[in-house]
Computed example of a mutant assay.
Amino acid sequence: MTSISEQKAAVLKQYEAYASVSAATAHEAMGRRGALDSAIKPIRHGMRVLGRAFTCRCDPNDNLTLHAALKMAQPGDVLVCDGGGFTEQGMFGDVMASCAVGRGLAGLVVDGGVRDSETISQIGFPVFSRAICIKGAVKETLGQLQIPVVVGGVLVAPGDLVIGDDDGVCVVPASEVGPLAIKCVEREAKETRFREALLAGKATWDMLNLDALLKAKGVASPFGS
């Protein structure tokens, strides 16, 4: 019988397999599932986030629950906050980002607004949000923590894998992390070979066999028979 620490180590090892996997690759390999709304993007170009989800839900214009999440989350966790899509707030800023870095957290994904984007970028903490807004938040209502939340139109449960880069964010259910890793690695290798062939002069039309696609639809090829 494996211990809880051994189980956690096994999960972290699975996550490591995604170190070079893009959010788009995970989305495609998962049958085009898991992609958050395209409006949720990194606050600065080049940010990447990878880790297990620690979820919370905040009332609009209130970040008390997010402060609780900062204290409760474990190193390597990604805070995933349902902010109700409320953009006229800066519910997370440089002070909270400093705390997150000090506690070893991997990033924040929030369906809401944040502020202090320049300083957060300098601190080096990955933040993905729906908006950037200078308006502050209050600390009045304690919401729920470590429960399934809907962020960017996607259901996210505690422990799910979060992958984010310049293209956006993809969430992989914890139960699919292991099997999907193999598909992602295979897809990345295939696309590398594909790009090499294209750079050598091949056309996407031929590589994708689009003549056959048109023929199956009963449409004549623009290049003749």
Rank of each mutant, 00 (worst) to 15 (best):
M1C: 09
S3W: 02
S3M: 08
S5F: 11
S5N: 10
A9W: 01
L12M: 12
K13C: 12
Q14T: 14
Y15K: 02
A17R: 07
A17C: 05
Y18R: 07
V21M: 08
S22Y: 08
T25D: 12
R32N: 13
S38Q: 08
S38R: 03
I40T: 12
R44P: 00
M47D: 13
R48T: 14
V49T: 14
V49L: 13
A53W: 13
P60Q: 06
N63S: 08
N63A: 03
L70F: 10
K71W: 11
G76K: 04
D77T: 06
L79Y: 06
L79D: 07
C81D: 14
G83E: 13
G84H: 08
G84W: 15
G85D: 13
T87V: 10
T87W: 09
E88R: 07
Q89I: 15
M91S: 12
M91L: 09
S98M: 10
V101A: 12
G102Q: 06
R103L: 15
R103E: 15
A106Y: 09
A106K: 04
R115F: 10
R115M: 11
R115S: 11
S117C: 08
S117F: 01
T119V: 04
S121W: 01
S121A: 08
Q122C: 02
G124A: 02
G124L: 02
F125N: 07
P126R: 05
V127Q: 06
S129A: 15
G136N: 08
L145K: 02
L145R: 02
I147A: 04
G152I: 11
G153V: 10
A157Y: 06
D160H: 00
D167A: 02
D167F: 00
D167G: 02
V172T: 13
A174N: 10
A174P: 02
S175F: 00
S175R: 01
V177D: 11
G178D: 15
P179H: 01
C184G: 05
V185S: 07
R187Y: 08
E188S: 00
K190E: 14
K190P: 00
K190M: 07
E196Q: 00
A197K: 05
L199C: 00
M207I: 09
L210W: 09
A212Q: 08
L213Q: 07
G218D: 09
A220I: 05
A220E: 12
S221N: 06
G224E: 14
G224V: 01
S225C: 03
